[in-house]
Design a protein around this nucleic acid. Structure first.
Lengths: 143, 143
DNA sequence: AGAAAATAATTTGACCTTCAAACTATTTTT
DNA sequence: AAAAATAGTTTGAAGGTCAAATTATTTTCT
């Protein structure tokens, strides 16, 4: 059983399960009406000021039409504020509402718990090695 | 900027990108008519003999109704064979056709290439730490 | 043996997500 | 002022999902 094979198995299992698991986590507790998809949109909008539809759609890798529909629902549920720009009236600016920011932070804590579970048994040195390896992985996927 | 935070960011980016990349890979090239979902079903059916609907649905985490629809399409496209069991006529047995097995192996090779490309840029030490971290991540999700 | 219950799969109807293409409104270019 | 470009929304079609109803078959229990 070589290491490549183990990595392959673990990665495959991970990526097969991750959406289901994250969805289960998201849809329990305080924010039952947020789907996994909603959460991706919330994360893409982020907390640093209003963004236009096109830039958020691009960062999510979906069409603006798709984003419009997702944002309709998030506005209706009260997680996102949507206003038309005064400077350029073609532009729509979206941002997280108070409730949206709370949901964002709730989900962030889930990620933090996950990361802590991973790294709590690694030494400082191992953490650094892992980080280097993951950065390489990200570079690989970007190409 | 602590190391946990960096790890979180890198992991999130990784998992967000990997599905897109895999989807793109699946839908180009030789097997254009196989969706990412189709490929999950093909992988669940696997190559070791015929399986019944219920067990495959369970391993995918979907209802049998959902699987019926997916299998209808895969049978129509020629990737899956479907026969009624002689021993128990309630049971439907599904298995990969020759074309289905080819698609399965094609996808498997993609995974292997991906893993090799990742691993070849890592040192032995990095590989070991990465494996350890991924196993932990899997355990976290299983709990 | 025969009726009732359990099991396996399919069908149906509703809802959600996605995209491409058509469309509306606004701004920029010529 | 007209034409082109840009930003979003709407529309129509295709997939994917589930719960509930339905069909067919097998098992269980008198």
């Amino acid at each position: 059983m070589n290491i490549n094979h183990v990595l392959n198995e673990v990665l495959v299992k991970l990526f097969r399960n991750i959406n289901l698991i994250e969805e289960r986590e998201i849809c329990t507790g305080e924010y039952k009406d947020v789907t996994a998809n909603d959460m991706h949109v919330i994360e893409a909008i982020d907390m640093d000021g209003a963004k236009n539809m096109t830039s958020v759609a691009k960062s999510l890798g979906v069409t603006t039409g798709t984003l419009t529909i997702a944002v309709n629902s998030l506005v209706k549920k009260g997680y996102v504020d949507r206003v038309r720009s005064e400077e350029d009236r073609r532009v729509v600016l979206i941002s997280l509402s108070g409730k949206g920011r709370k949901a964002y932070l709730h989900h962030r804590r889930f990620h933090e718990k996950m990361i802590n579970a991973i790294v709590e048994e690694l030494t400082e040195e191992e953490k650094e090695v892992l980080e280097k390896a993951l950065v390489k992985l990200n570079l690989f996927f970007r190409a």
